[in-house]
């Protein structure tokens, strides 16, 4: 642990404030709780919200896993893991099952999470209605009065223009049959995993200074219409490395001729799948 810093970087008063916010966020599933976001030693957009949430809940006995688009070995994931190693001296892991806290940028691990794990999302824009209504005062009212027609009209218009909802990531969900919530820009492939997930889900948006939460065993429904039910992505291909046909696949261009391969986005899942 480096000298001159408190455990987990944040000072105790800040942690207390964030902890109070997290508790209120759990009590009101899907509601965006404002909090006094601090400046972190990395740029907005790199996970400042997620880091503040993780820093407020992490203890010396925790094991941290950080993923970026499902991968354990990308710049963002490694930097955040190194940051917590430096300021907490905690164990980190790439193994989804061994982690007690998983901080994620835009994927939910393929492996089902358990009750004693916490999933922390890094969120760029917590407000699902922002592109439809730019004013914060207005979106607050829309949420308060459960006035979600705008969102349904948007989805309807996509269907009438394109034949289906074209949003493939950050696909809006309804949490506990009340608040429309942004699942952060995870692919809609991951949305069904959020429904009645056994792990606690916490969302931190650093620039926008919002924290929201979904408790374990909570209903999370992707918005859809009876005649146009919600569907996740599917692939005709299999993972080029492990051969999986049921995980989320990334398309990789491998040469100048434009030839491509598909590989699992979840590197830990892929590795384990390869071994078995």
């Amino acid at each position: 642990m480096i000298d001159g810093f408190n455990f987990a970087y944040l000072d105790e008063a800040t942690k207390r404030m964030i902890r109070r916010t997290i508790l209120k966020a759990i009590c009101i599933p899907g509601y965006q709780c404002p909090f006094g976001g601090r400046e972190m030693p990395l740029a907005y957009g790199w996970g400042t919200g997620g880091i503040q949430v993780t820093a407020s809940i992490i203890g010396i006995n925790d094991t941290l896993k950080v993923i970026d688009q499902g991968a354990d070995d990308t710049t963002n994931a490694i930097s955040i893991k190194n940051f917590f190693k430096k300021v907490c001296k905690i164990e980190t892991t790439e193994d989804t099952e061994k982690a007690t806290i998983i901080q994620t940028r835009h994927r939910i691990p393929e492996k089902k999470l358990s009750e004693n794990q916490i999933l922390v999302y890094q969120v760029p824009q917590p407000e699902p209605l922002r592109r439809l209504e730019p004013k914060e005062q207005e979106t607050r009212k829309l949420h308060a009065y459960e006035e979600y027609a705008l969102m349904h009209v948007k989805l309807y218009e996509e269907i009438s223009h394109f034949g289906s909802v074209i949003k493939t990531y950050a696909y809006p969900v309804r949490t506990n049959k009340r608040y429309i919530t942004d699942p952060s820009p995870t692919p809609k492939f991951d949305n069904p995993k959020m429904d009645f997930m056994e792990a606690l889900q916490l969302f931190g948006a650093g620039r926008e200074r919002r924290i929201y939460a979904i408790p374990p065993y909570t209903s999370v429904q992707s918005l859809d219409f009876e005649d146009h039910p919600f569907q996740i992505q599917t692939w005709d291909e299999r993972c080029d490395i492990c051969g999986s046909n049921n995980s989320y696949l990334d398309e990789i261009i491998i040469n100048d001729k434009g030839e491509k391969k598909f590989i699992c986005s979840d590197t830990n899942y892929c590795e384990k799948n390869l071994k078995t």
Partner: peptide, 20 residues
Amino acid sequence: NKTFESQEAFHLILQATANP
């Protein structure tokens, strides 16, 4: 020991609140 004792206590409060 404010840092560690409050983290331990918070962890329990968090568990209790997430699992009413």
